[in-house]
Design a protein around this nucleic acid. Structure first.
Lengths: 273, 273
DNA sequence: CGCCACTTTGAATTAGCTCAAATTCCGTGG
DNA sequence: CCACGGAATTTGAGCTAATTCAAAGTGGCG
């Protein structure tokens, strides 16, 4: 396991640091624990995506670009000029470090923006690769920038998208740092299903468009471990593989994935596997 | 080790995926490998920070808030209304998941903004905790939003800061996912030193304001492993501890840290440790 | 039909974790 | 100023989750 200590000793340490230092006011305002999927919230989110796309199309009349599996929308090092907003399809973001390490650092779905990483330095910091046929709106950053001044709704949409990305990236880091391998895979599936649900797509049956090696790379583990974890999830009945092929995963109950994660974190439960 | 495979089999897999799918155009535009620290770039960055702070102060005349070690600037779950820009000090961002896992997901220095995570949902997603005495500019988001329309420079600064945060978070994820423990600690120190250098502060001597437990939590490893890795770095002469106390770390040569990381990644080198 | 890439599963190995004990540091009060 | 106690750190020893290495199985596609 990566780090059980995080749920025990380290957590106590951090918590006590906060408690003593925050002058007794720490953690009285926690989010309501959202462990259950929320259909109403998903519908709202889906509608919000549709409205944002409509807004962008109306205000900016952007060019559209159709992509196919394997196409690069932009490439690390390339000069920044455009942002892209997905209307359909599925993308991965791949980072390449100076010393040659390569990693999938993000997954993107309909409504997500691509290219934020390029704003600060004038160069894109990663590759955006289509994993499937899809379409993006091509948005000139300077045009968007200018339009934002006159159209507050555009700026709101932009800021919201960047904010969401920041929050999501942190959740990713958290998953990698605090969950053991099995739970990480479960969390990955949960995130994917939730992402689909929030966009109004069916989420009980997802087609993994990534190989085990890519999933493992994204989650910080080997392809063998991904395979073993998926097998364990299937054995536990939390997921089902379609009869033919193992790229299609059925998720009868998303909440069961969350329970599985909790079960992985539980310290002293003797359930045979 | 977390994942040597990433540097071997998985990398080949990913690379070939890109190569075959990107129609032969993959990776011709890589960044220049920046393995060496760059004094000129640091100076430019430092000046840029100063200019941005000046701009914010002039245009928005923000309130200032002095903080001391342990103070919370904002708390997860709290209603969003302000962004904060650090003029001095040092902060950590702590995420708390719905199921109680807690993790340090970011470190912030002078010039960095705090609170972006709150824009999308109207609630902050993490705690921002001061690790030292410092000061932040308190910026009402609605005021900033309004001012951006008239002051393009403000919007540029805002977008740059968000973009930088997104890129940085991905580097974090990459470090955790692709580096073994020793290299991760080295990379952590390298990042810290670089962060100071880019702000015009001395970077050859840094005072770790975090316990081993916090560092380990941030890097996804235990406090014991952090301690062992630091000892190994000291034994290798890459860092030196101040005579009294082990919170002060001297870094005679930042580039030596990068070399150490490379050395950790090297597959078949038989150097005794 | 056969190749090739992907996946699964097993067995052995190891990096990092857990547990434990000794040491150092630092604030506090005598 | 020094003694004391609690917190943080270091280091060792054993354990275990995940990796590495290896081999067999499966499916898609020309």
């Amino acid at each position: 396991m990566l780090n059980t200590q995080i749920a025990t000793a380290a957590q106590v340490t951090l918590a006590s640091t906060l408690a003593t230092s925050a002058k007794g006011a720490a953690h009285t305002l926690l989010h309501a624990p959202v462990l259950k999927s929320d259909a109403a919230a998903n519908q709202r989110a889906s509608q919000h995506v549709a409205e944002t796309l409509k807004l962008l199309i109306e205000k900016l009349a952007p060019q559209r670009r159709v992509v196919h599996a394997g196409d690069l929308v932009y490439q690390g090092g390339e000069s920044f000029g455009h942002l892209y907003v997905m209307t359909s399809g599925f993308f991965k973001l791949v980072n390449l470090s100076a010393d040659g390490r390569e990693q999938v650092v993000g997954l993107k779905f309909r409504g997500d923006w691509l290219g934020f990483d390029g704003i600060a330095n004038g160069r894109y910091a990663c590759d955006a690769v289509a994993m499937d046929t899809g379409e993006v709106l091509v948005i000139r950053y300077d045009a968007l920038f200018a339009a934002c001044a006159a159209q507050p709704a555009l700026m709101t949409a932009l800021h919201e998208a960047m904010s969401r990305e920041i929050a999501r990236d942190r959740d990713s880091l958290m998953s990698v740092c605090t969950l053991p391998a099995d739970a990480r895979v479960a969390d990955f599936l949960r995130y994917w299903a939730e992402s689909l649900a929030r966009r109004g797509l069916r989420s009980d049956q997802i087609t993994l468009r990534m190989t085990r090696a890519e999933i493992g790379n994204y989650l910080g583990m080997t392809l063998e471990t991904v395979s073993r974890s998926l097998s364990k999830l299937a054995r536990a009945g939390v997921i089902l593989f379609a009869e033919k092929g193992r790229r299609d995963v059925q998720i009868p109950d998303v909440d069961a994935l969350s329970e599985f994660i909790q079960h992985c974190l539980a310290p002293a439960s003797a359930v045979l596997q």
